[in-house]
Design a protein around this nucleic acid. Sequence first.
DNA 1: TCCTCCCTGTTC
DNA 2: GAACAGGGAGGA
Length: 286
Amino acid sequence: MPELPEVETIVRTLRPQVAGRKITGVQVLLPKTLQAGAEFLPLLAGARIAAVRRRAKLALLDLEPANSPPLVAAFHLKMTGSFFVHSPGTAPLKHTRLIFDLTEADAAGTEPQSQPSGRLFFDDTRTFGYCRIMPHESLPLWDFWAKLGPEPLETPAAELAVRLKAGNRAIKAAVLDQTVLAGAGNIYADESLFAAGIAPTARGREISLARLTVLAEALQAVLQKSIEECGSSIRDYRDAQGNAGAFQNCFAVYGRAGQACVRCGMPLQGARVAGRSTVFCPKCQK
DNA sequence: TCCTCCCTGTTC
DNA sequence: GAACAGGGAGGA
């Protein structure tokens, strides 16, 4: 379940492995994974990977085809998407959905080498993830992209607080809503609500702006800390070098229903909020 | 605003 | 062999 810190870690570990290299070919092993942009596949042979970046929970490859305008490949990893660079000739794995064959990084002005020197695999066990290829200039026209809220780590907490206050739903639903702020998922929603002492079911409208600012700051802190720990590895998350993160060792509430609250010792409570499994402390969170 | 569904591997 | 994990689309 890559959320913002995990996708950021994946992008950081993928970047040095593929940036500057050229694509020599693409294999689509599961058609539905390529959710849009199949018509651009013929342009990819010879395209240079100019940048690897993140927005919200999306991993983006900026591509420069040889003789046409820039493209972007936008990947949503959902729960089980992952990247890994294998040696040339490596056969697809059981859950490999997409393969980009790559050359070595090219020196400026040189022709792309004809021999592939690596294969970028997009693996996705549960097939919820997707890739969309589109012209770079079309990115703002993609509805999901256009509706994304601000990056929580690049936005003042006070501004995030105002956005969280809108609406009358459970505050956890607002934190998870990518149009309110982009990048939080179930883990970081629960962890930030605990850190801020706010019950996940509290209604945004009824929480003071001061407390919502505390929540926004808590979210920023927990995301930042998790990035430093290279994300949370529960079940199968790995970065693009196959390494696990360590932030799961810092969880105060996520996955700890029935265990003692780290603050007051009371048993943590499990519940279902906003359609998601939720853990909170009934005493510390109001 | 809230619920169901998509999907497969793991756990009970 | 059922319950569960969950981001986001789509419908009630």
